Amino acid sequence: MKNKRLKYLLLTLFVVMLGLLSRKMSACTLDFVKLYLGDVLWAMMVYFGCRFLFVNMRKRVACVLALVFSYLIEISQLYHAPWIDAIRATALGGLVLGFGFLWSDILCYTVGVLLGIIVDGLLGWSRK
């Protein structure tokens, strides 16, 4: 079990690294990729984070948990009190909480979690 947990931790960190790199991509000229890749990777990271934290959880349950968490974060962006906007003004707070609600982010989160499930299945770590 520890070995599987370590694999999910490394995969989560790898996706975090890809997400941070996606914010710095100046070589990519496709606006579509610039706009949506970070959100897709963020949701994929949430999925793998769920798999890391709850290593024996079924993929379906991890999928629902990751989607609910991601959607709640997005919905929370409709709330703008000074204290939470101060958190969002920090680099980490902005990356985690975001700034403004977008329906396109909901779609990106769904795609990211689904891609996470696909990668998870291809790796075959949950097979007995």
Rank of each mutant, 00 (worst) to 15 (best):
A27K: 09
M25C: 11
F48C: 00
R5C: 08
N3I: 14
F32E: 09
F32R: 02
L115N: 04
G93T: 05
D85T: 08
L67M: 14
M17E: 12
L37T: 10
M25R: 11
L95A: 04
Q77F: 00
L13A: 10
N3T: 14
L53Y: 08
R23T: 10
M57K: 11
L20Q: 13
E74D: 07
D85F: 04
M25P: 07
L107W: 05
G93P: 07
L6S: 04
V15K: 06
K24S: 14
L30T: 12
W125A: 01
K2W: 08
D31V: 15
L9P: 06
G93C: 09
I73N: 02
K7V: 01
L95R: 07
G19N: 03
V119Q: 04
W125N: 02
L11W: 00
C28G: 02
Q77V: 00
G98T: 06
Q77N: 02
V40R: 15
L10M: 13
C108K: 07
L37H: 01
H80V: 01
L115T: 10
V61L: 13
S22Y: 03
L30F: 15
V96D: 06
L21A: 15
V119N: 01
L11C: 04
C63V: 02
A81E: 14
D39Q: 03
G124M: 05
G121V: 09
N56K: 12
K24E: 10
L13T: 03
F69V: 13
F48T: 00
V16N: 06
F32I: 10
I106R: 04
M45E: 00
S26P: 02
L11R: 00
L122I: 15
L67A: 10
I106H: 09
K34E: 03
Y47L: 12
I73T: 06
D31T: 14
V40D: 06
S26R: 07
K59Q: 14
L107M: 11
M1Q: 09
K2N: 10
H80D: 00
G94M: 04
L18S: 12
L53A: 11
V119E: 01
L35G: 04
L13I: 09
L95M: 02
G19Y: 00
L35D: 14
L6G: 00
M45W: 03
M45S: 05
S126I: 12
S126E: 14
M1L: 08
M17C: 14
G116W: 00
S26E: 09
Y36W: 14
